[in-house]
Design a protein around this nucleic acid. Structure first.
Lengths: 146, 146
DNA sequence: AGCCTTATTGATAATCTTTTTCAATAAGGG
DNA sequence: CCCTTATTGAAAAAGATTATCAATAAGGCT
């Protein structure tokens, strides 16, 4: 289902600012902060208010159309979200972020933890960090490592 | 190794504010924000500057003595960190947070994702969310669910 | 135990981020 | 094409974080 449809079906309008934010994130390989989004759109002439960026992100996140990802250093940003259960993997070098499908791979771990802690687990946050294929090539050329 | 030792060994002093923050987090069952830490210490008479809370947290986090945990709603807080590879599980009802040991449980998943994406995975962020034993009891009594 | 060096603190101010307010605008149904 | 009302944007308020620098205190040394 298109993001426009998701908005409509939930009683929200497909407005200019929401479209701009959504399309920008869909094109971006890296997570973006509200400020980065605002600046990128301003510079490309498609101006909109900073406040609208915040409001658009808040709504889109609530509807699951964008996701928050956390950098290893503590900062965070938004990426366009695909439907269904999924997680993100993030390049520590260039910050390129892509999605991978969630699966039952965690169920063993979750069962173990439930048994150990007596918590009942309903949800989780999982992100992987590493080096993307492109940056691996660069590493192979130059000697620098990280 | 004690947190005092970790500070000393890295050339830092075991100062009052660092002690206060460290001990407060060690006693707290829930993650705390800088402001909450500041207020809790102020109210119990052990006053210190807000700035010192930030600086203490920054240093303690850098040394791995405290960890950041993310709430499902996007807010985040600090908890005292145990040594070694571990993760956190967090009660959605009362925010009680405890640690569970990291293990090789993710290696299958990581291998699968590396194969799918060609990323080289070096690190990860994993947190579980659920209901703690105490809050499960309360749920059993009252009818409300979440 | 007391001194000395210097890392650390805390108050203030500056900066940056996010939220509130409310009149003006525009989305989309009729 | 109009009308209703959700949404926007500018400005201001509120909140969070960081920089500055003189005063303080930690811990090595004697």
């Amino acid at each position: 289902m298109s993001w426009q449809k998701v908005l409509s079906n939930n009683g929200y309008r497909v407005s200019g600012p929401r479209r701009l934010v959504m399309e920008l994130l869909a094109e971006s390989a890296q997570p973006m902060t509200p400020l980065e989004i605002y600046q990128a759109l301003s510079q490309s002439g498609r101006a909109l208010g900073m406040v609208s960026v915040y409001r658009a992100l808040e709504l889109l996140a609530e509807l699951g159309l964008v996701c928050v990802v956390y950098n290893p250093n503590g900062s965070s940003g938004y990426v366009a979200g695909s439907a269904g259960h999924h997680h993100h993997i993030l390049c520590k070098r260039c910050h390129r972020t892509i999605t991978f499908a969630g699966s039952e791979d965690l169920s063993d771990l979750i069962q173990r933890v439930e048994a150990e802690t007596n918590f009942r687990v309903s949800d989780h946050l999982l992100q992987l960090y590493g080096i993307c294929p492109e940056c691996q090539k660069i590493s192979a050329d130059t000697v620098e490592d990280n």
